[in-house]
Each structure stands twice: as C-alpha cells, then as structure tokens.
Design a protein around this nucleic acid. Structure first.
Length: 284
DNA sequence: CATCAACCCTGAGAGC
DNA sequence: TGCTCTCAGGGTTGAT
C-alpha cells in the first residue's frame, strides 16, 4: 500500500539518469529515470484511471510534452511537464514501471501507458483500479487541500501540538486524514503510534506537549526508516522495498510486543485494521 | 468539526 | 477439484 516512503522511493527512481541502457540498469538492480524523455503518445486501457481531463483530451494534450521533473507531495507523484502537470496517486495497488516499449507484452492490470519518443515507456499498473492520474495546468488544482509534509522542517513541535490540540477526534484517524497531515497511511500510522507509546483511540486534544513532540519524532523516524529501506512490499504488490520485515506492530497480531513482550492486539478503528500493544499504548 | 458508511475493485481464503 | 461466496485492504467522498 504505497504511503509516503513508497511514493518517495518511486519518485527518486524516476529521477535516476535517463541515459543508460536497460541492461546496465538491470545489472544495478535499479531502473532508469524519465526526466528529459518526450511523451510520444498515451494509451488508456481503463478509462476511469484518468481522473481528468476526458480521455481524448488527455491523450492529445500530453503528447509531445517533455518530462521536466519528478517530485512527491503527500502520496502523489508529481510530474512537471512542459505545459502541464501529471499527478499520479497509486492508492492501494498502483505501481509504475519504466521499460523498453518493445519489451513486449502488456501485463495484466496495465491501465495507462505513456510511450516516449526514444522507444521507452512508463506504465501505470493497478490491479484494483483505485489509482488515478490527473493532467492539470497547475498542481494546486489537486493538491491544495493537503496538510503539511511530515518531514518538512516548517512543521515544528509547537505547530504540531497546536494542530492536535484543536481536534477532539481519536488520534489515529486524524493522522491518516491527508488534510491534517499528508503521506501517512495505515502501516506507518500504527508503527509511529506504537513507537510513541500512544493508543490509537486517544483523543488528539488530550495529548501532552511531551507526547505530541514524541509522536512527531516517531512519525519522522518510521518514515525515514521506510525510505531508507525503499519502502515496504506487502501482499502481492511488490515494490522492491523490505521495510515489511521490520514492522513492530503492523500485521503482528498475537505476536509479542518488541518492547514488553505482550501480545499485539488488533482492533478496527475508522474501518481500518489497527495494531497496538495493550500494555505500552494505554488511553489516559 | 465529528462520525459513520458507501464506494472503488481484485484476489485470497473459506465453505461446500 | 472446482465452484461460489465473503471480505480485507486504503483513501476519498458524501450524508448526518
């Protein structure tokens, strides 16, 4: 499930040098970037993968534009083109590949293919069809509602405390609300709360200064660790990362807490499976 | 603002 | 073995 670290990993790979040939990249166990490549044409196999504009407009408008840069905002991939911006949200099961156009086959679940003039292509693959692409003249059309980036230095402990203090909702759903803070999903939220020793149902405004500061710190720790390990690869969606081998609570129901040994519990919070240690994480 | 449910889908796993 | 059924899973949106 691509969250901030997975999307950041993909964004970085798309910024790799575009010049080397594919055999060289395979030898490095990495992928070539796409910055500088010119989009020749677009193929849309599942029309609802394109959020905006209409398919024909999308295909015409994107053709001929050069990829100028690749960045990340929250869980969005942000591709700057000549005139427009291409935003990609992978949702639960989306992924992108860069490959020679003649590597042949359309794989199962390939939804959108951008063919480049140099004979390579970018493929958006998404088994569950939840992911979306937007082609817009300004990224704010899609991104304006997002909360602050958790890793940004502008987000100070004092600011974060004030944000939490203004909300009476349970802390876990709040952390997953992209308007409150962006980039966190189910995995990294559970991991950060466990490390901060905060119960997922604790009301946000009841967190102390110390707890709030600790939470911001552990959020950043787990995100940085995720990025360092190239993200997590779970279910059948393989993305090349290995953070899944270092989860402390996520999908460890019944297994011992790595801090105190108590069995990890699973409850449902905001319709999401939630993992926590009943001894280390107590509501107060 | 808070809370809850529906929705978008596929594939895994259970039951028969 | 193969069929049908149920539901997990994350994020967004809309209703209340």
């Amino acid at each position: 499930m691509p969250e901030l670290p997975e999307v950041e990993t993909i964004a970085r790979s798309l910024r790799n040098a575009a010049g080397l040939d594919f055999a060289t990249w395979q030898g490095l166990n990495a992928r070539p970037g796409i910055v500088g490549r010119t989009i020749y044409s677009a193929t849309v196999n599942w029309s609802r993968s394109i959020a905006t504009p209409e398919i024909e407009v999308f295909r015409q408008q994107i053709s001929g534009q050069v990829v100028q840069g690749v960045n990340r905002r929250g869980k969005f991939l942000v591709l700057q083109l000549d005139r427009d911006w291409l935003l990609i949200h992978l949702r639960m099961s989306g992924d992108v590949r860069v490959e020679p156009a003649d590597s042949g086959l359309v794989q199962p679940h390939d939804r959108v293919i951008l063919d480049f003039q140099d004979g390579t292509r970018l493929v958006f693959n998404d088994p569950r069809k939840f992911g979306r692409l937007w082609l817009v003249s300004h990224p704010d059309e899609v991104l304006s509602g997002l909360g602050p980036e958790p890793l940004a230095v502008e987000l100070t402990p004092a600011t974060f405390y004030a944000m939490l203090h203004a909300r009476k909702t349970p802390v876990k759903p709040l952390l997953m609300d992209q308007r409150f803070i962006c980039g966190l999903g189910n995995i990294y939220t559970d991991e950060a709360l466990h490390q901060a020793q905060i119960h997922p149902l604790q009301k946000a405004h009841t967190l102390s200064h110390e707890e709030s500061e600790r939470l911001l710190s552990t959020i950043r720790d787990v995100l940085r660790e995720g990025i360092q390990r190239n993200g997590a690869s779970i279910d059948w969606v393989y993305r090349g990362g290995d953070f899944q081998n270092f989860f402390r609570v996520y999908q460890r129901t019944g297994k011992p807490c790595l801090r105190c040994g108590t069995a990890i519990e699973r409850i449902v919070v905001g319709q999401r499976g939630t993992h926590f240690c009943p001894l280390c994480q107590v509501i107060h």
